[in-house]
């Protein structure tokens, strides 16, 4: 079942000369992990902001959990269904103690105290921040702050989490931890994940990759289907993962080697084949 559906979605910013989104029709399955790639200005963030009604369509429709986001009386339902994590954690942290920040949304939802305690502990553990529960957020590093921000959204138990470049400010280990936590959530609790990113390696972990360009969907498929198109990606000014590029450079026609080498291991397998052939 689709948790998110957009029908011919168009959007134009005030005073802009052209549409930021031009007729995007997509359906996102409940429980799936979708990555959205694209250049700055491709419309990917604009798209993400439609998924919890931060922006409303100029034309077309967006349905989140079956609810039309343009229906103002259902705004709370839309936001409860799709939680949003942004790029800069500094803009998302409100409290002066980590665990209070994570509890913020739960308190606003009027949950009983024991339930809040339980969720805060669980969510901090999920992002590997339990030992910082009583710390002051401003003393944390950027990566740690972002994990706190993610925990705060998780604590609302949304059905779908939309992340707009959540790892752009993180270092590799921080990034890996966040992505691991997100993957785990997706697999174990069946939470729908929509990840907007510039990192090909992160997108490669998703079930589905959507590449946007100039407000339209340019490519849509499994990571292997999308990333094996080295030349097409280059036309879209995106680079395929290095592993794919390397295999492609050695065998552009794909006669001996499979270009679907997304992991280091798969790539090494193909290279051994190349050296032996």
């Amino acid at each position: 079942m689709a948790i998110i559906e957009t029908k011919d979605l168009t959007f134009r910013y005030e005073d802009a000369d052209s549409d930021a989104l031009c007729g995007v029709t997509l359906s996102i399955e409940e429980g799936s992990f979708t990555a959205i790639l694209g250049h700055n200005g491709s419309g990917k963030s604009t798209f993400a902001k439609h998924l919890n009604a931060i922006l409303l369509p100029s034309g077309g429709k967006v349905y989140v959990g079956g609810v039309d986001t343009a229906d103002e009386s259902r705004l709370f339902d839309v936001r409860k269904t799709a939680g949003m994590v942004f790029q800069n954690p500094d803009n998302q942290i409100v409290a002066t103690v980590v665990e209070e920040d994570v509890a913020f949304a739960c308190e606003n939802m009027g949950l009983p105290q024991e339930e809040i305690r339980k969720r805060v502990d669980e969510c901090l553990a999920a992002v590997g921040m339990s030992e910082y529960a009583r710390h002051a957020p401003h003393l944390l590093s950027g990566g740690q702050k972002q994990r706190v921000a993610i925990a705060g959204v998780l604590a609302m138990r949304p059905r779908c989490i939309v992340m707009d470049e959540p790892t752009a400010m993180l270092d590799p280990s921080g990034r890996a931890e966040v992505i691991r936590a997100v993957q785990q959530l997706n697999r174990e609790t069946g939470m729908t994940v929509i990840l907007i990113t510039h990192h090909m390696e992160e997108a490669a972990l998703a079930d589905r990759v959507i590449v946007m360009k100039q407000g339209k969907v340019a490519l849509d498929g499994t990571p292997k289907q999308v990333f094996s198109q080295v030349d097409r990606l280059r036309e879209l000014s995106l680079a395929a993962p290095q592993t794919v590029q390397l295999v492609h450079a050695l065998d552009p026609a794909g006669t001996v080697l499979s270009p679907e080498a997304l992991s280091v291991e798969e790539c090494v397998g193909q290279l051994m084949k190349y050296l032996e052939a």
Binding site: D171, P172, E201, P241, Q242, T243, L246, E265, C267, V268
Partner: peptide, 13 residues
């Protein structure tokens, strides 16, 4: 914990 390029990792392997 550093981000070593994928091709470097491939060559290590």
């Amino acid at each position: 914990g550093l981000d070593v390029p994928q091709v470097t990792q491939v060559f290590l392997e």
